[in-house]
């Protein structure tokens, strides 16, 4: 990750840490539980959540594993995560500050390595996945969850333009086909996958980025989205509902294992 992009992420998530934490109910308790179950956590697992943000997923995993760590590039997020941890009185979790593309952990350390809703912030997600593979034990599992960009070129470009207008630290919502190729390139096999359509309120989604009606970026994002409604040009399946717009993010959930190397 370039210094400029890292600083963009740190700036965005430091500025919006409060809003992001407060509105990080991107995942309702039901969705969070679904994501925890998807990871098939084991009581013996040493788990790591990469790009953990305010720690919701790591803290949800903690009661089901031996120990859960979270790592994030933004210090303010680590402070939030630690505060949530204290609030929830969870003893078997810890949070560190570092980059997904250069994890500060020894090889083959963790039984379960997860990353959710973060690959779309990374200019080189393949580096992060390579790092996740490196720190996972040979028999360990990787869980990758992220929004999926549309497969069609025109929808893909407009979709990512809308995302970047809302959040300048957005890099690219990858296509399902890109994820599948990346898994293959990293020697991973899919043990389980689930594709979800997550419906959400546009206004709530904007609040999570710290944007309200009077903000310029709110207005620009809303205009782009409204213009995309005829023919669903950006792949959000948008539906106007009073002063809000209901949008859909396609989400891929993947449980991955290191593929057994074939004998020569």
């Amino acid at each position: 990750m370039t210094k400029k992009h890292r600083e963009a992420i740190q700036k965005q998530f430091t500025r919006t840490a409060e809003a992001f934490s407060k509105f990080a109910v991107r995942d309702t308790p039901e969705v969070l539980t679904e994501k925890v179950e998807f990871a098939k956590p084991q009581p013996t697992d040493l788990a790591l959540d990469v790009a953990c943000g305010p720690g919701a997923y790591a803290l949800a995993l903690a009661p089901r594993v031996k120990f859960a760590r979270g790592i994030d590039i933004t210090e303010e997020m680590i402070r939030r995560a630690r505060a949530f941890q204290a609030e929830k009185q969870i003893a078997n979790a810890a949070f560190d500050c570092g980059e997904a593309e250069a994890l500060p952990y020894s090889d083959a350390t963790f039984d379960l390595v997860t990353c959710q809703m973060s690959f779309h912030h990374m200019p080189k997600p393949e580096l992060a996945l390579g790092e996740m593979v490196r720190v996972t034990k040979p028999e360990g599992r990787i869980v990758l969850i992220d929004t999926l960009g549309p497969e069609s070129d025109s929808k893909f470009e407009l979709h990512n333009a809308i995302e970047s207008t809302r959040d300048p630290s957005h890099s690219s919502a990858l296509r399902l086909t890109t994820f599948l190729k990346m898994f293959d390139d990293c020697g991973l096999e899919i043990l389980r996958q689930s594709l979800k359509r997550r419906q959400r309120s546009f206004n709530h989604w904007m609040l999570r980025a710290g944007l309200e009606l009077h903000h310029k970026r709110y207005q620009e994002t809303r205009k782009l989205l409204e213009d995309s409604i005829p023919g669903d040009k950006a792949g959000y399946s948008p539906q106007v509902q009073d002063d809000d717009i209901i949008i859909v993010h396609n989400e891929g959930m993947f449980l991955l294992g290191k593929a057994a190397k074939s004998e020569i």
């Binding site: 590039i73 210090e75 402070r79 949070f95 560190d96 500050c97 570092g98 980059e99 500060p104």
Partner: peptide, 14 residues
């Protein structure tokens, strides 16, 4: 040397 700030090790290369 990676700084430790408020007990948080900042393990970021640059």
């Amino acid at each position: 040397v990676y700084p430790i700030q408020d007990d948080i090790p900042i393990m970021i290369v640059d």
